[in-house]
Every structure is written in structure tokens, then in C-alpha cells.
Design a binder for these strands. Structure first.
Lengths: 352, 352
DNA sequence: ACCATTTGCGGACAGGTGTCCGCGTCAAGC
DNA sequence: GCTTGACGCGGACACCTGTCCGCAAATGGT
């Protein structure tokens, strides 16, 4: 009985040498088993496997990675603002990388810590770095240059418009163009932009799409669309959407359609409109962006743009594996994902 | 001019020896500078720092961690279902750990991969492992035993009821008790449970709280409360909530108050009720759990329980740092966080 | 110019792993 | 009983860093 108890507490083993002593074999032999090299008798293989199961021994990864030429790891830097779609991308990406034998080092970005994060990645000798989300463009560009200096491939997911960056992103211009076309078809001619400034470089892509749709029908951005972004602080997106709409409702002639940067802002906008007695879509239309699950639960369900997470990650993995194999591409790669309009009941014919 | 161009492409440096050759110093001297040892002339320190900035060299972390006794890293295993509150906990925890000089290895759990994940943590020689969220109890217990076998401290955040586990969690029993009391005060005597089975072990804590509140007023769980969880598949929580409520509405006398497992289910429930013409809170009350931002945007705003993320992480860090200093505690630690009821307009007086 | 002190050098070792290689051992086949 | 493989052993080296130590060189003071 007591022998069983003793067997139940196997010794703490922290090196292959120690483990080999436990099994009663040479260290090199054990190493050969662990790395599945040929020329081993089945019985000894079994003996090692059994001891492995008993003790739960794991070779020190740091020593392995130190020895081996590559680390088979990629760094993933995550935007501060953690929304469901971003997280879904993270989870999917990590799982796919795992399937390819890659370990992922995940760091959540915090303002001013991007340098620390990249240096950590570099010290861990990652083979590539992925950025997911939106960052400060200037800061990101510096980091990318830093990585290029070390000949480490990178990939930016979602943040379009960084010079020389390898990018995979939803075609937000096309998305906005399609959305505006949808609203134009419904008779809308006045647009309130929520979270989309007319000038700010970070949202330029969306503006391009909006402008293109308007121009195709002989309309002008400046006269059709307005934005009050600068006048409201953006802390939580829901409240931001509310505040922006309240500002619009102070106008003599509020717009008939609202285009929001994302679903959260759109939902806040709907709330403020309905609280003010404006019916949706009877008196105003509202559109979101991202197609989060919550959209279908609103009254009315929110018209929005689907993020296409799976295609995005699929393409991202293609670009990534190509770079892991062949190194940094000579010219930056830009792959855009086609968006898909999801029309629900928050958009309707313009009030005449 | 060309010399400038040449200077712009510093050589790829991947070891301290190489770097020392570049600076023109001995490897040991450089190492002393990097580790801030005394007895160095300021001018040589500057020389190294300058070269450091030029080349962006970073010592190989694997070699350092191999040499040093501890790795100063903790593993974080994340629940598959990524909701905003969980993510907030992750981000906060990682930031705090970073502040304490600890690196965090983050892995998103995928069914059947918990073994792989833990083995990865072990091979990286993490000094502790944190689980955030809810997992398969049996699987989690095996992992915890595995960790204990290696003398590695652990901490489970949110998942209450794992035997021998060090746990930090919201007191969900107290929360449900307070919530039911609130509804009893409003005159409710019939309760529909959404996502909370009467028997299932994983939700036993909530049931205990509900039962306690009822018992204090001489009421009985079996007669007051019903649950149809088994009859509806749970894929997306929003739709789950909708489906459950539809099932309840088939009854001759649907309950006057609905207690949902989380905010998503509650929101789905509200949608289904309102679509069926049931006014909230006039004809039925609905409560959520977690107090996500979206709650305030609903019509009516959702009564719910706040997660208390900051206190939770604060306590988690206390427990964690204590274990990192002193090793596994002799007896499992259980710290519960006091919940806070957030009463909004989705609950009201029972219809008479 | 001389001596004492600071300061950098270079060799050595440890930490754990993967791999190569020569050598011993054991069993099977003839 | 001898040869021939098959198989395991153990020494050696490399990967890169941190640290210790003896020693040489440079520095500073007088």
C-alpha cells in the first residue's frame, strides 16, 4: 500500500539528464526518443513514453529554442479596445497558427508600451509579428521599421493605410460605398456621420467610399454630409453615439440617415433618436459596422456591414505563411477583403 | 552621402558576442553594461547605449531565462467564449503583471487542447498559471492536479466550485439572492430561469442563492421557479434567450420574472417578450448578469449584476503574488468578491 | 617617473538541449 | 563458437547569456 503512495509522488524532474536517470537510459537515447529519431527498439520507446506519462516531464523549451535555428513563434499585438470581432480574429488566428506548429505570443497594447512589446518580441526571437486592430499610425510605422531592420516579417490586420505595411483588411471604402448606395436608393440625400470625421486621416478610407458613391450620382460630400466628431469626447462608444445624435438633433434640419463607425455607436445613436421620439426607420435611418451578434436583437434590427472574419483570417494566414517561408516580401503586400452588406430594418425610405 | 546610407543599414546582430565586436568591447563588459553592474566608466556605458540604439540589439531571452533561476512568466488560459468582461480582465491582469516584471503567456482555450496548452506552459517553465472563465470541470481538475504535481501555483478566476482549486470569483450565490430579494420585494412569486438549470452542477451556486432568498420568505424553489434549459440548444446566447422565452410563453401562466444567466440571454429574452407583445416591466420583469455596457442601451435598460472587474483583478493579483513569493499554499485559497446589484428599468412591480 | 587605483579583457563555467560519432554490448544467424 | 548486425552508451560540441576571477592596461595623482 505504501509503495503505491510512494509511486504516486514521482520526483520533480527538470532536465533530460535527470529524466534519463529516472528511466535508466542514457540522456542521448532519451533525446532521440523525444525527437522521434529512427533506430530505436520499440520496447525502449515504450519505456520512455511510460515514464513520460508517469512524471509529466517536459523538456525545457528555452533550451530547445536556443539550440534550434528557428523559434516557430509569432508575436501578436492586440489593439487596446477589445471588441468581440477582434477577439474572434485573435482566437481563430492562434488556433490556426497552433495547427501549423507555431506558438503565439500575445500582448495587449497599452498606450506608450508598444516599444516594450516589440522589444519583448525581438528578445523572444519571434519569426513574425501580427498587429490586429487600429493603432497610432506614427507609432506603428516606427515599430514596423524597427522590425524591418531586423528582417522580421510583419502583418497588419484591419488597419489600412500604413505606408510600406503588409496589410490584410476589409475594404472599408467599398463597404461605405455600398452602404451609401443603399441609402441613396432609399431616397436619402442628407447624412450624419457618427465617429467618422470628414478630414481625419485615420478615417479617410471611409470618406473616400462615401464620396465615391455620392459623386456617382452627382452629389457632393460637403453639402450632403456632416460630422460633429470633434465636439464630443469619445470614451465609451455607446455614449459617444448618443451624444453625437443629440448634437445633430439640435440642427434645424437633422439628417435623414446616420452612418456610424461601428455597431456600438450606431446602437447609441438609435437609443438617442428613439428617446427623442424619432422613429426608426420611419423618420431616420441608422447603419452600423461590424455585424456583431447584438445587431439582430435591436428594435429595429440594425443594418450593418459584416466583418468577414473567416475570410480575413484565412487570407492573413496565407500571407503569413508565405512570409514565414520566404522572408519579407520585396514589395509590401496589400490584400483587401470584400465586405458584405447586411440589410435589416434600421434603414428605410427617406421621409418626404 | 553614401556613408550615411551605409550607416543606415547596421548589420544584423544576434548575439552579445557579435554585438560586443561591433562596439569594440569585450563580451563580458557589454554584459555588465546591459545588466547595470557597477564599476564601469560612464563613457563606455554611453558607448554601449549608443550602439544599442543604433542596432536595436536585444539579448536572446531564451538564453537569459535558461540561465536565470526563474522565468518571471505566468501562463494565462482563456475561456473559449470571449466576452467583453473576460477580455477586460485579461487586459488588466496582463498590464498589472507587466508592471511587476512578469511576462504573460496567453492561450485561448479550444476544446480538447487544454493538455497541449498546459504542456506548453510547463515547457516554458512558467511560475504560475491563471485560468480565466468557465471550463469543463473534470478537464480543469486534471490540469490542476498536473500543475500541482509540478509544484506550480494556479489561480482560477470566475469558475467557482472546482475542488482544491485556488479561486477568485464573484459571489454568484449572494448576487442571485439579492436579485431574487429585489424581485420578491416587487411582489413577484413566479420565476423563469434562463440558462440556469435546476440541477446541473455548474450552476448550483446560483440555485443556492435563489433557494436561500425564497426560503427566507417561506417559499419553495420547485413551486416558484422553472427552467427549460434542457429543451433548447445553446449556441449563441442571444438566440438561446429568445428560444427559452418562447418556450415559457407556451405555458398557461408564464412567470412574472425572468432570471437570466448573463446579459446576452436576458437581452434575447427581452426581444422575444417584446416581440410577443409582453411589455417590460409592466407585464414581465427581466434580469441579466455581468453589467455589460450594452445594458444601458436597451429599452428598457437592463437590471443586472455588476462583475466588479477591478476588485476581482486586484484580489487576483494579491493571491497570485503571494503564491509567486511563497509557492503553493498548503490549503486552497478561496476569495469571493461581493457583487453589486444594478437596478434599472427592466424590473418592476408584479402585475396583479 | 613612479605607484596606486580604476577599468576593461578574456578565460572559464553553468544552464538544458540536440546531434554527431566512436565504441561497447548483446542477441541472432550460420 | 564466430561473425554480423542492431542498439544503447557516453563523450563532445554548439547554442547564448550571466557571472566570477585573475590579469593587464590605462588612468590619475604626486
Amino acid at each position: 500500500m505504501s509503495s503505491i503512495d510512494l509511486k504516486k509522488s514521482p520526483p520533480r524532474i527538470s532536465s533530460t539528464a535527470e529524466f534519463a536517470r529516472y528511466v535508466g537510459l542514457a540522456r542521448t537515447t532519451v533525446s532521440r526518443v523525444l525527437n522521434q529519431q529512427p533506430g530505436l527498439k520499440q520496447s525502449t520507446i515504450d519505456r520512455v513514453q511510460r515514464a513520460l506519462a508517469e512524471t509529466g516531464f517536459t523538456p525545457n523549451a528555452h533550451a530547445t529554442l536556443l539550440k534550434g535555428k528557428g523559434t516557430s513563434s509569432v508575436g501578436i499585438c492586440l489593439e487596446n479596445l477589445l471588441t468581440p470581432p477582434i477577439l474572434l480574429k485573435l482566437a481563430t488566428l492562434q488556433q490556426q497558427l497552433r495547427g501549423q506548429g507555431y506558438t503565439s505570443l500575445i500582448e495587449v497594447y497599452a498606450p506608450g508600451e508598444s516599444r516594450t512589446i516589440i522589444r519583448h518580441f525581438l528578445s523572444m526571437r519571434v519569426e513574425a509579428v501580427v498587429f490586429i486592430g487600429h493603432f497610432d499610425p506614427a507609432e506603428l510605422e516606427v515599430r514596423l521599421r524597427e522590425l524591418a531592420g531586423h528582417n522580421i516579417p510583419h502583418l497588419v490586420i484591419d488597419h489600412h493605410g500604413i505606408p510600406h505595411a503588409n496589410t490584410v483588411t476589409l475594404d472599408r471604402a467599398k463597404a461605405m460605398e455600398a452602404m451609401v448606395n443603399h441609402l441613396l436608393d432609399l431616397g436619402h440625400r442628407t447624412f450624419g456621420l457618427l465617429g467618422i470625421p470628414l478630414e481625419h486621416p485615420s478615417r479617410l478610407e471611409r470618406i473616400h467610399g462615401i464620396r465615391a458613391a455620392l459623386a456617382a450620382r452627382g452629389l457632393d460630400l460637403q453639402t450632403c454630409a456632416r460630422s460633429f466628431d470633434a465636439q464630443c469626447p469619445r470614451v465609451h462608444d455607446f455614449e459617444f453615439g448618443q451624444a453625437l445624435v443629440r448634437r445633430f438633433l439640435e440642427l434645424k434640419q437633422p439628417p435623414g440617415a446616420y452612418l456610424a463607425l461601428n455597431d456600438e455607436i450606431a446602437i447609441g445613436a438609435m437609443r438617442a433618436l428613439q428617446d427623442a421620439g424619432v422613429s426608426i426607420p420611419g423618420q431616420a435611418s441608422v447603419t452600423g459596422f461590424n455585424n456583431q451578434d447584438i445587431c439582430t436583437m435591436m428594435a429595429p434590427p440594425l443594418t450593418t456591414v459584416d466583418q468577414q472574419v473567416e475570410p480575413t483570417i484565412k487570407v492573413a494566414m496565407q500571407v503569413l505563411t508565405a512570409q514565414l517561408r520566404n522572408g519579407m516580401p520585396a514589395r509590401p503586400v496589400l490584400r483587401t477583403i470584400a465586405p458584405e452588406l447586411v440589410i435589416r430594418q434600421s434603414t428605410g425610405r427617406a421621409a418626404s
